[in-house]
Write a protein that binds this DNA or RNA. Structure first.
Lengths: 238, 238
DNA sequence: TGTACATCAGTGAACGCGCGTTCACTGATGTAC
DNA sequence: TGTACATCAGTGAACGCGCGTTCACTGATGTAC
């Protein structure tokens, strides 16, 4: 990826690091993130426990790395969809007046695909926070990167002529606190609101689905998710 | 509460059980549910570890009890609000044509109050699921009880004349799978949809808020929550 | 191509720790007559 | 009111376990001349 001219040793180091992370994910899948054990991973790799300290300074560094990879994979999925949408919109749009509806729907699809592909990865990022854990700065930067892609999609959605329904001052509030959307200083408050609705509503359905709160209800989570996406792209956030 | 004529010994047992649970919550608040340790609780109570086995069969039973209490407290909060709303509606309604809007808003308020009062309790119920843990039946019954109160509130909301916007077949799907709403066999699909939107959207905002994903954004989570409640009660679910 | 040296992956023993849980036992509290 | 017995809360020792992490060491891989 970054850098080049890896020596064989560097290659090998990277391979082992990857394998460690792989086993770590398997372990998380089985027993949850808090039960992650370096010794168990080493055992599974046919190595002795202390060997892993050649590759990770300690347990915390491994977990941070897993969190970073998780964020990175979602950000990449978003960027791929966002980039594709941007290219499709740029040249000669053939599709009529709503290029952003599909954009949002595509992002939503990417989010759900990412989440259901590995629920434990989802929960490592969006689940119960680990007490005392602070994500390093480069990880929050990745989160900002995703938000920027989302804001791009929201930018293209025309503000809805909502009528007189009072919004409780939410759009004023968003106008007053838009530091999190600093990448898009010209976005109307309705677009900010749409982005937040996208984020919170879709995480709502996803977290209930992946935590199993819909099982036993006999409902199809994909349809519930789809219904929320439709509500966002057609009915707007309000 | 239930039963009567407790002997002093039974009283004492109950007191100690309560104290154990209290310390357990404190420990969860500090280090998360997975780090819950019987020995640590005993130490904190000035007792030796094995003493707790007079009160709980094992660690799992304690956790299950905590989960049960958490559900119970939310269900009670819901029932209180639901009961109050029902009484207010019953005699001579003075408030105009929308008795259920306030009902839903009141339930939403109860949910948020309950959640922010103790975020760890919230996450024990709605956070990352504990791998391998199956809630006993009486707990799912409590969940059904809450759903029933919510459905009561949704029943009073008149179906919105939504126009021709296609809903992707979600209401048909809900009509076909309404076992989870068996307490309300006559509810229109739009009310079922409203209940699910209530549940998933509010949990979306709440879980992001309590996991700290809004901090650093400078936004007021209470306002975001309020905006979603307004969208539910005014704009309906779609 | 060959030798001398430096780098680094991995081992095994060890440290200290805390956990859940069982068990035999003591001592206090309640019960029956 | 007093005595004999049963119940039960709590203790301390012990078992077996796995964890994260440090450390001195071996042996293989790469580098410099």
């Amino acid at each position: 990826m970054t850098g080049a001219a890896k020596t064989p040793r560097e290659r090998y180091r990277q391979q082992v690091r990857e394998e460690v992370k792989e086993k770590a994910w398997q372990q998380i899948a089985g027993s949850g993130a808090s039960a992650l054990s370096l010794n168990a991973i080493a055992r599974q790799m046919g190595m002795s426990g202390p060997a892993l300290y050649r590759y990770f300074a300690n347990r915390d560094e491994l977990i941070t790395e897993l969190v970073r990879d998780a964020y990175r994979s979602l950000a990449d999925a978003f960027a791929a969809v966002g980039g594709a949408a941007a290219e499709a919109t740029a040249p000669g749009t053939t599709d009529g007046a709503e290029p952003a509806g599909p954009g949002l729907a595509a992002l939503a699809g990417a989010l759900r695909d990412w989440a259901v592909a590995d629920p434990h990865r989802y929960f490592l990022v969006y689940g119960t926070p680990v007490p005392g854990y602070r994500a390093p700065e480069d990880i929050t930067a990745i989160a900002a990167e995703m938000m920027s892609v989302l804001l791009d999609a929201c930018a293209a959605v025309p503000p809805v002529s909502g009528g007189a329904s009072p919004d409780g001052g939410i759009e004023e509030h968003l106008s007053a606190h838009r530091g999190w959307a600093a990448t898009h200083p010209d976005l109307p408050p309705s677009a900010l609101r749409l982005a937040l609705a996208f984020w919170s509503r879709l995480h709502g359905v996803l977290s209930l689905e992946l935590a199993g709160h819909f099982t036993g209800m006999g409902l199809d989570p994909a349809r519930l998710f789809d219904a929320e996406v439709r509500a966002l792209t057609e009915g707007r956030a309000g």
